[in-house]
Design a protein around this nucleic acid. Structure first.
Lengths: 229, 229
DNA sequence: CTGGAGTATTTCTATTAGAAACACACGCAG
DNA sequence: CTGCGTGTGTTTCTAATAGAAATACTCCAG
């Protein structure tokens, strides 16, 4: 087995510095840092509402799991509040230790590459597999979706603007608004590129199925060119 | 147990339609659709080189796993080629069935939301946890990284332009070039927003640790406001 | 001949996505 | 009043994914 992995169930108390928690932990702890008791359900809804515009919303399973882990670390405490006589829910609040930890993370974590997985672009990249009309439809739909998300972000930006103390979320949401506007415009430009390709007649036959496609896969794939035994 | 889950080790032959494979499977199969025998290693290198600019590059473990699954489905075949007398490698080639399957996927798969996980934005959103100078540094570093990726994409776009038959990858790479340029410009705009916030004096004290932060978490968090038992 | 870089693949663990199951409350249509 | 859908709130399960590391062998430089 590994030397001791990166255990975290060892001591009951909080860790000395910040243990290397995944980004989602910090996101959850960060939400709690806005001074408010929140249940797992609250966090999920809030994330869906606003965080998802620039940071993929975590699943229920993960949120509840993270909350338990954060509690083990002493970063949050929880209590059960009753809503009617039988039903209760567990709400979490950040501790001073947790606040310190999330501050340290925000200050010192390395600047990482944003994760982007753009299915539409993958399909454009593989454009020779689809007929041009359908491909155009796909990109057009993506453009419309981007505009929809832009509008959503604009509404949320307004909402944040009206609340004092939401200065930073407002800046992030403004960024999201511009980001999704850019996505929309990028889609439009790509639509034009696609049309130009059509007009130039080089489309739909990029990879002759038989015949001399020897140098086909070009630069990236030439690696497989010197084998045979 | 579930009715029959979505088994895929059932029949040895290829599936009737397209079994619901994850996106990564299609990405791998799509690369093989460029007519070329490729090893797992080749695919990884190629993905790192170009796909990662718009579609997060899969890990070795996943690529090798996907190749085995694709072979079980009859979408690819493999053979071992010798490079010297002892060392060999396994290269994969797409089958007609596989080509048909990836075509069907490209044509019919729903247009899905791109996955974005932007750590930098998360930290801006939580800006009140960091001192403004450090936050500015983080965003500035992100801007520089974006410009670097933009330049990378520009080089690759050129390379694709010179190869015939790379029309669609070229369009995708052109998109990537503009995308990362947009990211760079968005970071610059956000830097200005951050400076404005500083100038207006509303920074660093958005969340009074004590005192009347009753309505603090605002719109999204008001959910926890009507409890107590 | 030792060390590092590149090729090539496998194994392991932790993180993450997503669906589903469960449980209860509330309002509304039949 | 009975069932049905919707919303709250949480847990459990499976599969997908990221990332590091182990293995192993080659070639080249010092």
């Amino acid at each position: 087995m590994a030397p001791h992995s990166r255990d975290e169930a060892a001591a009951p108390g909080p860790d000395p510095d910040d243990p290397r928690l995944p980004a989602t932990s910090w996101a959850v702890l960060g939400m709690l840092a806005f001074e408010q008791e929140l249940s797992g359900y609250d966090i999920k809804k809030w994330a869906d509402w606003s965080l998802k515009l620039f940071y993929w919303s975590p699943s229920f399973s993960q949120i509840y799991g993270e909350l338990k882990r954060l509690e083990r670390h002493g970063y949050v405490t929880s209590r059960t509040v009753m809503q009617d006589d039988v039903r209760g829910k567990r709400v979490y609040a950040i501790t001073p230790t947790g606040r310190e930890a999330v501050r340290t993370w925000a200050r010192t974590a390395p600047v990482e590459t944003p994760v982007l997985k753009h299915g539409v672009l993958l399909r454009v990249w593989l454009g020779h597999l689809t007929d041009p009309t359908r491909l155009r439809e796909i990109v057009a739909e993506h453009r419309d979706n981007s505009e929809r998300r832009r509008a959503e972000a604009a509404v949320d930006t307004q909402a944040a603007h009206n609340e004092t103390a939401w200065a930073y979320p407002e800046i992030a949401l403004k960024w999201a608004e511009r980001y999704h506007a850019a996505e929309r415009d990028l889609a439009d430009q790509m639509l034009r590129d696609l049309d130009d390709l059509q007009a130039s007649g080089r489309a739909t036959a990029p990879m002759p199925l038989a015949a001399g496609s020897a140098s086909a896969a070009g630069a990236g794939a030439r690696v497989a060119g010197d084998e045979e035994g």
